[in-house]
């Protein structure tokens, strides 16, 4: 099968810091990939390169057959790739409903009625239809993150990127977000998730990737990586988080 995401030899520098050192990675349609690794290992940077929120200095990325080169291609890719952020990043001046409607209206050119119908279905799906008219500040972190997921899903993305989606949440709110993500994984969504949630990784991931110092150190099924790590770097990292 053609990979839906093809990352070839990506290098990224932040000034003097060599943040990604030649990362290559193919992701198949429907695959759920969890990226773990110590902070500063480049895992978020890699994720942000996939929709070109981060520019890279060398290498190529192709998403769903579209190379990330021209501005038009980058925008085309972004409409097919949903992204969920650690800090939710809901538009604070808009209601929940308006947040989910915005890109549907501007990019997908749906009518207002259609946008609202789709948004309400998605809010139903993430379990908070009653919050449609609330503003982000009035929601808990877990609720905000679920709205952020609904907002991304409203574009009918083929791929969802999650950048530490539960790291800014109180412990009791993590489950409600992971449940939504688990449902998505079961439905066959292609997902790339930067997260240290081992339970989620075991339940949903097809592949776990460990990054360190800007490189992929080890990858394999959750069972392989968590139970039988081959590299010392992996063992060291797992000993810190388990």
């Amino acid at each position: 099968m053609e990979p839906i995401i093809r990352i070839e030899n990506i290098h990224k520098y932040f000034g003097e810091v060599h943040a990604l050192r030649g990362v290559s990675l193919d992701i198949q349609p429907g695959e759920v990939v969890i990226v773990i690794g110590p902070s500063g290992s480049g895992k978020s940077t890699l994720l942000r390169c996939i929709n070109r929120l981060e520019e890279y200095d060398q290498g190529e990325i192709t998403v769903d057959g579209i190379p990330l080169d021209t501005a038009a291609n980058i925008n085309a890719v972004r409409t097919e790739v949903g992204m969920v952020f650690q800090q939710f990043n809901l538009f604070s001046h808009m209601t929940v409903l308006a947040n989910i409607n915005l890109a549907q209206r501007l990019i997908r050119k749906r009518t207002r009625e259609e946008c609202t119908r789709i948004s309400m279905e998605l809010l139903e799906r993430v379990g908070i239809p009653e919050k449609a008219q609330s503003y982000p500040i009035q929601l808990s972190g877990g609720q905000q993150q679920r709205v952020a997921i609904a907002r991304a899903l409203a574009m009918n993305p083929k791929i969802m990127l999650f950048d530490e989606p539960t790291s800014a949440l109180d412990p009791e709110m993590i489950k409600e977000v992971l449940d939504v993500m688990l449902d998505l994984a079961k439905e066959g969504m292609t997902m790339v998730v930067v997260s240290h949630e081992m339970g989620f990784a075991r339940a949903a991931a097809h592949r776990v990737i460990l990054m360190a110092e800007g490189e992929i150190v080890e990858q394999g099924s959750p069972d392989q990586v968590f139970e039988h790590p081959r590299h010392e770097r992996t063992k060291l990292f797992l000993s810190h988080i388990l």
């Binding site: 929709n51 929120l53 925008n75 085309a76 972004r78 409409t79 790739v81 949903g82 992204m83 952020f85 800090q87 990043n89 809901l90 538009f91 604070s92 001046h93 915005l102 890109a103 501007l106 990019i107 952020a148 907002r151 991304a152 574009m155």
Partner: peptide
């Protein structure tokens, strides 16, 4: 306006102009 607001808008496929018009300027104005 926090950088994340623009990133969220751009990641949804909004152009720079759209992100300015619908996300950044309304918040800046406030």
């Amino acid at each position: 306006v926090p950088k994340g607001q623009v990133e969220a808008a751009r990641s949804l496929g909004l152009t720079y102009r759209m992100a300015m018009q619908h996300v950044v300027l309304p918040q800046a104005f406030r």
